[in-house]
Design a protein around this nucleic acid. Structure first.
Lengths: 189, 189
DNA sequence: CGTCTATTTGAATGTACTCAAAAGCGGTGG
DNA sequence: CCACCGCTTTTGAGTACATTCAAATAGACG
């Protein structure tokens, strides 16, 4: 079952009784997305957070010049949403779409908060995940402030070796913060 | 009492009995830092997270060329630590020092985790704070990817109006990711 | 005051972007 | 199976944004 992957993931961080596991699963909705299909459009409200079972999603924003900037790739076993919209119920600044055919399980904020009351361990699980995401986000921020484009590309290659040969270069460029043209030149040096 | 400011802050997000409040306070350590004094040096382990009562701290990293990059300013009522080191107990990548004479309350990770078991509401409080920090960090990341230096400076001015006339320009430069010389030129335009 | 640090100014340089065009590559339909 | 179409990647020339280095000026603090 695809829910096994999720419960297994949760149990890496906290322990869960069978009943609790069932209760969590009952709140989840399984969704299949085709390549290029959107899970969330900028301006909508992100009522749900998604756990990727297979495939890969990305979250990104589009700037005033029409350039896309990728905030996160979410391959299997990653959670993804527009956190700002998810916790505030305001209009999302980000969009989320599928980079390939993708299976996800979604959990609404409403159900998530309800489960936090019923299963304290689950709140702990998300607390830990959020702590880790914060570390990663801040680390990336420091990299963007202190490294050159070339160094950021090299770091991306060592950090996400599996994505290098999977993703088109233009997506990597949109993640590390350079134009596709310039990334192409970087790779030659 | 300086602990009132902290309990009051916690109670903005969750409710707390008197006993629980006392228990939390009993785990805190009050520290006073003089201007330029360090709370944490890169390479040390951040055993503690600090809540600022008065004054202002900053966390920053120093790159291979000796340039400082500021990750966070923490004026009164903000928490600050090297999250990476705090949760992993590995060597900190960041340093934290005082921009002026500053009073803080510190809480060790050990005590924090213990309190999470005893007071589930406190874990919720930190879960909420961490969610908000993640939103802020990712928003700043997007800004760094999509805005020019001038736009980042303008956004900083509107987002942190109180800091503009308080902090030396070189610190603002180190936060928005430009050289002090260039920030000076930006302000003229 | 005098010293130290922060800020400004200017000229030269470098990193990354823009725009345009060509080449590569993958999928699709005839 | 090949030809074509659309999208990605490469290449090049010119440009813009931001840095470097140096020096002058202004401010803060003892």
């Amino acid at each position: 079952m695809s829910t096994d992957l999720l419960l297994q993931n949760i149990r890496k961080h906290i322990s869960l009784t069978g009943v609790e596991g069932d209760k969590i699963i009952s709140k989840l909705k399984k969704i299949t997305l085709k390549k290029k299909q959107f899970l969330l459009h900028e301006g909508q409200i992100a009522h749900e957070v998604a756990f990727v079972i297979s495939g890969c999603l990305r979250s990104f924003s589009v700037d005033e010049n029409g350039f896309e900037h990728i905030l996160q790739f979410a391959p299997a076993e990653w959670w993804i949403t527009d956190m700002y919209s998810f916790i505030s119920e305001k209009e999302a600044h980000l969009s989320i779409d599928a980079l390939m055919d993708t299976e996800i399980m979604t959990l609404s904020r409403k159900n998530q908060l309800q489960l936090f009351d019923e299963i304290p361990g689950l709140e702990r699980y998300f607390r830990i995940l959020t702590e880790n995401s914060l570390v990663a986000s801040r680390s990336r921020l420091i990299d963007n402030l202190s490294l050159t484009a070339k160094q950021r590309y090299q770091k991306f290659c060592t950090t996400y070796p599996s994505l290098i040969n999977t993703l088109p270069q233009k997506l990597i460029a949109a993640y590390i913060g350079v134009t596709p043209e310039f990334l192409s030149k970087l790779r030659k040096l």
